[in-house]
Each structure stands twice: as C-alpha cells, then as structure tokens.
C-alpha cells in the first residue's frame, strides 16, 4: 500500500496537534513540515516513545522500523523535523 505524501503529512500533523495540545511550550505557530520536535515542541525521551505508539496506531502498523527515523549514521539524532517523519512513513508504509 502506498499513501500519498500530503495525506501522510496531514495525518502526522493531526497526531502531533492532538498530542501537544496541553503541553507547556512557548511555540505558538501551527505545526508544519519545518517544525522541530525537540526545539519547537519540547519533546523528551518518553514523548518520542509515545509518538511512535501514536503513529503506529494512526497508520495501523506495528512493524515500522523506527530506528531508521531516530538514528542517523549510527548516532541518535538530536532533533527530528516533521518532514523527516513524513519521509520515513512515505518510505515504509
């Protein structure tokens, strides 16, 4: 099954908006492809675990190779942009 990128983006933004609606954070803009999870949305470790579960639920998949999203060149990425999540899902859904 292949899902168009704009549809994936809409769904990811929806998941993130639902997830962060009660959070104490300074970021007041809308969530778009350029938004950074840690810098803009104040994500911590446990939030990333919860995001993985939320994405698995939203896309009805438990076999996503999330290491490909969270790691780059053997190192944990310090920051994840929304566009990276969308690219990852486009490649693996």
């Amino acid at each position: 099954m292949s899902i168009e990128r704009p549809l994936i983006l809409d769904k990811v933004i929806q998941v993130l908006e639902t997830m962060t609606q009660d959070w104490d954070m300074d970021y007041a803009g809308t969530i778009n492809e350029d938004v950074k999870l840690v810098e803009d949305l104040t994500f911590a470790s446990i939030d990333i675990i919860q995001l993985v579960v939320a994405l698995e639920e939203a896309f009805q998949r438990r076999d996503l190779p999330v290491d490909k999203l969270l790691l780059k060149d053997g190192r944990y990425v310090d920051e994840i942009k929304v566009s990276s999540i969308v690219d990852f899902l486009k490649a693996h859904l």
Binding site: I48, I49, V66, D67, L70, L71, R75, Y76
Partner: peptide, 8 residues
C-alpha cells in the same frame, strides 16, 4: 545505531 534507541 541500536544503542541510541536504548539511550532513549
């Protein structure tokens, strides 16, 4: 790469 996920 796996160690980094474990760190999380």
């Amino acid at each position: 790469e796996k160690q980094k996920i474990l760190d999380q």
